[in-house]
Computed example of a mutant assay.
Amino acid sequence: MNAMNPILEVENLSLATRSNHKLVTDVSLKVEAGESIGLVGESGSGKSLTLRSIIGLLPSGIEQVGGNIRSNGRCAMIFQDPIRALDPLCPVVRQLAEVVYYRQKVSRKVARTIALELLEMLGLPDSLKHTDRYPRQLSGGQCQRIVIAMALACKPGILLCDEPTTALDVTVQRQILDVISRLQKELGFAMVFVTHNLAVASSMCSKLCVMKEGRIIERGDTLPLLQNPQNPYTQLLISSVLPLPDLERSADL
């Protein structure tokens, strides 16, 4: 896939309510195969709506009113709340096997085998191979790994991540981010990663797009953008990141 043929291209995307209140205006981005692009900004800036429009899961009452979306690969999505993303009435291995069965067009037996291989890849307990469990019987981090496995079962060329660690505690967040990074290196999918956390964005994404009030106001390679932001809003976002306290000074007090 060369620069003239990106795996995903969003061109002048505009989204609005049925009463014509604009929520996203003229958003454009290109993603090359294997590339990671972050959409960052405060809550309500249009990040998640942009992501949902790519996969065709806009909330009821919101419509695409302009622009084009072109993809040259299968898209899959990881949602920010793993509990709500799973069917509470169906055991998780069965859920995952169903996704494999329908998306990979294999037999039920092969689908279960592939599902168990995905669970092993994601470091889930071996006990699930013998005793399936409902989402409520797993931790939030384990449920998020199941959601990631479901996305990977679609064999995506593009993985869409909608703040996938927001609902998790900080130690589990790091584990999940490490899993996603490792799998991207192993499987080579492109990624669009939505987050309001600049530290997460800087660790996961090679390029950033900063969104404010439904528009991209600044974009660029991650490190130069964070070191030398041009837009006052980007500067404000960076300055609002709380620094760690001076630990040596604190120890002397």
Results as ranks from 00 to 15, higher is better:
Asn228Ile: 01
Ile238Gly: 01
Met211Glu: 10
Ile217Glu: 10
Pro224Thr: 10
Ile180Asn: 07
Thr222Phe: 06
Asp246His: 01
Ser240Tyr: 01
Leu226Ile: 15
Ser239His: 06
Met204Tyr: 01
Ser181Arg: 15
Gln230Leu: 10
Glu213Asp: 15
Arg219Phe: 01
Leu242Asn: 02
Lys207Met: 00
Lys185Arg: 09
Leu183Thr: 12
Thr234Arg: 02
Gln235Asn: 02
Gln175Tyr: 00
Gln235Arg: 13
Gln184Glu: 06
Leu237Gln: 06
Leu244Pro: 08
Val210Tyr: 07
Val200Arg: 09
Thr234Trp: 04
Gln235Gly: 06
Lys207Pro: 13
Val241Pro: 04
Gln175Ala: 13
Leu247Met: 14
Lys185Glu: 11
Cys205Asp: 11
Leu242Met: 11
Ala190Arg: 03
Leu225Lys: 11
Thr222Lys: 07
Ala201Thr: 14
Arg219Gln: 15
Leu237Gly: 03
Ile217Tyr: 09
Phe189Leu: 06
Asp246Cys: 01
Asn228Val: 03
Ala201Glu: 10
Val200Cys: 08
His196Thr: 09
Arg219Gly: 12
Thr234Asn: 04
Glu213Leu: 07
Lys212Ile: 01
Arg215Pro: 04
Ser206Glu: 15
Glu248Val: 01
Leu183Val: 10
Phe193Lys: 11
His196Cys: 05
Leu225Trp: 12
Ser203Arg: 14
Arg215Leu: 10
Leu183Asn: 11
Gly188Gln: 12
Leu226His: 03
